[in-house]
Simulated assay, not measured.
Amino acid sequence: MNPIQEYFYRIKEPERSTLLFLRKKILESDTENITETLSFGLPFFKFKKKMLCYLYYSKKHQKHYVSFYHGDRLEHPELIQEGRKKFKILLIDMEEDLPVELILRLIDDVKQYIRA
Rank of each mutant, 00 (worst) to 15 (best):
M1E: 04
V100A: 05
K48N: 13
E28T: 02
L90E: 05
I26L: 12
N2H: 06
K111E: 07
Y54Q: 01
E96V: 01
L27R: 07
R73V: 00
N2R: 05
L91V: 01
E95F: 10
S29W: 08
L38P: 06
D72H: 14
I89G: 11
Q62E: 09
V66P: 06
P99D: 02
T37K: 14
Y7S: 01
E75V: 13
I80L: 15
K60L: 06
K86G: 05
Y113E: 10
L38F: 03
K48T: 00
I11Y: 04
C53F: 06
E28C: 08
A116Q: 13
L27G: 11
K49R: 12
Q62P: 01
K60A: 11
E32W: 00
L27N: 03
I80N: 06
Y57S: 01
F44N: 09
L90D: 04
K25H: 02
Y57A: 05
L74F: 10
E96K: 15
D109V: 02
F40A: 11
D72S: 12
I103H: 04
K86L: 13
D108V: 02
Y56C: 12
E95S: 15
F21Q: 09
V110L: 08
G71L: 03
K86W: 11
Q62L: 04
L90Y: 10
E13P: 08
Y9E: 12
Y57K: 12
D108K: 15
P3S: 11
H64F: 15
K25N: 06
F87N: 12
G83L: 04
E6I: 11
R84C: 02
D93Y: 06
Q62C: 04
Y65H: 09
S58P: 10
I89L: 14
P43N: 01
D108A: 15
L42N: 05
P99Y: 01
T35Q: 08
L52D: 09
L98R: 07
I107K: 10
I92Q: 10
K25E: 13
L20H: 02
E82C: 09
R84P: 01
G83A: 11
